[in-house]
């Protein structure tokens, strides 16, 4: 399912003294099957953009096209249920939203809310718990007896059980240890590939953005500051650095080394393998005469 934001503006609390412009003139295309990363500082408008992707917010200007639906400021929207089912959002710290007595009930809650029968929902719960890498026995446990990492996975399974076409992730690995982070991201990437999902990842991790995304959008002060492939974005990192954002470690090291040795590598490296190749080659060439 394609999603497209066209010149979207959003103001919070319009016509009150608290009115505040959160995003303006934001245009982003997310064709079906894209892995898009959105990066930017806290307060740059990332979360506001995210809430437009399944019509939780209605733009105050511009259009949001989600599949065959067009969301504008004008129309009173009806039947948003289908959109909410097809675009699943995993919010930050999703484990805070667990509430049921058992893991199974918690995962079934969403699908049943959308009219799936109990039997079918249970089937989906079993499939989803496997997808997030947890054993089926966990279904009968209370979500509150699980570890933090397990709770996070259960919450994610609840979104997967809706069988969405688009999955939106807001900082999905915050607070996890390095192994947990890698496992969760690898899991999303494999779901993205095998199920042909569109994935939108809001992250502070330039490593993840460069490793997984096809497209990167940088948000700043409520506007799209730059967009492009990881290669394009990180090949001219001046913009990022000016905003005080990080670049991936590999890129940062390359920049330091080029500056200090007064050399240029033949390309911008995005992986450690590329970087070691380039360093080895540069060392072989030796200092410029």
């Amino acid at each position: 399912m394609d999603i497209s934001l066209q010149n979207v503006e959003y103001r919070y609390q319009v016509n009150t003294p608290f009115e505040r412009l959160a995003i303006k003139d934001v245009s982003i295309d997310i064709p079906s099957g894209t892995f898009l990363a959105i990066i930017g500082h806290t307060g740059s408008g990332k979360s506001t953009v995210l809430q437009h992707l399944n019509a939780l917010l209605k733009p105050t200007e511009g259009n949001v096209v989600i599949g065959d639906r067009m969301i504008t400021s004008e129309k009173k929207q009806k039947n948003l249920k289908e959109i909410r089912q097809r675009v699943g959002i995993v919010f930050q710290f999703p484990e805070h939203q667990l509430f049921e007595e058992t893991v199974e009930k918690d995962i079934c809650f969403g699908p049943m809310n959308f009219g799936v029968t109990e039997e079918a929902a249970k089937k989906r719960a079993r499939a989803a718990i496997g997808q997030v890498g947890l054993p089926e026995e966990i279904l009968s446990k209370s979500p509150f007896d699980l570890s933090g990492g397990q709770m996070r996975r259960v919450a994610i399974a609840g979104v997967l059980a809706m069988e969405p076409d688009v999955i939106v992730l807001d900082e999905p690995t915050a607070g996890l240890d390095p192994r947990g982070r890698k496992e969760i991201m690898d899991m999303f990437f494999s779901l993205h590939e095998t199920r042909g999902l569109s994935t939108v990842l809001v992250t502070h991790s330039m490593e993840d953005a460069s490793r997984y995304a096809d497209q990167i959008v940088i948000m700043h002060n409520g506007e799209v500051y730059e967009k492009g492939t990881p290669k394009e974005i990180f090949s001219s990192p001046e913009g990022l650095l000016k905003l005080g954002l990080d670049v991936p470690e590999v890129v940062r090291f390359q920049l330091k080394m080029e500056k200090s040795l007064n050399i240029r590598f033949s390309k911008t490296c995005l992986t450690m393998e590329e970087l070691t190749e380039e360093i080895a080659a540069a060392m072989k060439r030796g200092a410029p005469k």
Binding site: S260, A280, G286
Partner: peptide, 27 residues
């Protein structure tokens, strides 16, 4: 990884600055 590539680094570097410094010296 650089050592595996055959670069003669004397030790593990904990900071990027130290590593760049060493590479600069041998370069």
């Amino acid at each position: 990884m650089l050592r595996e590539k055959g670069l003669p680094l004397s030790r593990h570097y904990l900071s990027e600055e130290e590593l760049v410094e060493e590479l600069w010296t041998s370069h």
